[in-house]
Design a binder for these strands. Structure first.
Lengths: 176, 176
DNA sequence: TTTTTATGTCAGTCATGTTGACATATATGA
DNA sequence: TCATATATGTCAACATGACTGACATAAAAA
């Protein structure tokens, strides 16, 4: 029943390693969002505004549905936040060209400015962490975090080694 | 003004790498908490309850102040959540021995059970991610995430290579 | 004995999510 | 062309988990 010759129980070590990972993710996420949250508060905005600004900046001309799909919130939730951003001049909208029901979203100058200010903070935090941890650690970080994400959400981080324009075939559901 | 001979602008690549990291953290955290959130909902609890249960399980006999320090929320916020957990029999309290003002907190059997159920989910997710990414990646993940956390919160993750009981000297504030 | 500390409580507010129901304009297919 | 589906918006109500501010109590410490 009892291991002989082994020092501390390896199952315990594994358990401890996993708990450390869980806690690190908790503290990292909290510290990672704290400073942007403070900046946002100056504008009367919250973290939800940051997410909207971020993804519009990342995907100029994104539609409302696409944004909803990324954020995975209800349209009612988005509407409040997005409405404020439009009204206060951080986000501009224009009708879709092929489909005029769509609202295509873009950041205004002011919006880009705020986006830069918010994201620069988080970029710098990662830049520092990457620098201090070294390039191999960065690769490892990427690999682990990629596997933490639900499979259905990994598409945007897929490494494309294939030639351009070559759509990757849909991954089969796990199985033989 | 324009780089000759270099392919894609390396500054752009770096920017892209940093943005990917930012987004991965967002999606990972969301997916990581989604399943426990669903379990909690069955009990009428939320993520805040999970955090309280988790840290009481991790530090049996923890005081209210210590818990507040870890969670970094106000006592009013904690009080609601903790109150429910006590009332519904997931957390037990006893007065401190040396200081009878203190409330020492422990999980009950039911509490431990729920804690296990919640955390097992997250542990498994990390176990799978670690397995698929490999041990070197795990080390890298740890190094990067450690550096993402605010310095003042890193203590709990410090690798202690020194002998037991040997307190590590406080790190000097950066500077010459 | 006075002051500080650990904790609790009441009351109100805010940000961000939810559900459900219904409205409108446009696109698309039979 | 007409019917249906889609993209989006809006109103209303509610839940969670944070916040601030003010005040209360018991026990420890000076």
């Amino acid at each position: 029943m009892t291991d002989i010759k082994t020092g501390p129980n390896p199952l315990f070590l594994r358990e401890e390693e996993l708990r450390q990972a869980i806690e690190m993710l908790f503290f990292a996420y909290r510290d990672f969002t704290a400073e942007p949250d403070q900046i946002l508060a100056q504008y009367g905005f919250g973290r939800a505004h940051h997410r909207v600004i971020y993804f519009i900046g990342r995907h100029p001309g994104i539609t409302v549905s696409e944004l909803l799909a990324i954020l995975a919130i209800t349209k009612q939730s988005l509407s409040r936040v997005l409405g404020q951003l439009v009204e206060e001049g951080f986000v501009a909208q224009r009708p879709g060209e092929r489909d005029r029901r769509q609202r295509l979203l873009d950041l205004t100058g002011t919006g880009r400015e705020l986006e830069r200010r918010l994201t620069e903070n988080q970029r710098k935090r990662f830049a520092r962490a990457f620098r201090e941890a070294g390039p191999e650690a960065v690769e490892g970080f990427h690999r682990v975090l990629f596997n933490i994400i639900d499979e259905r959400n990994r598409g945007r981080f897929e490494r494309r080694e294939e030639g351009p324009g070559r759509a990757r075939p849909a991954r089969r559901a796990a199985g033989p």
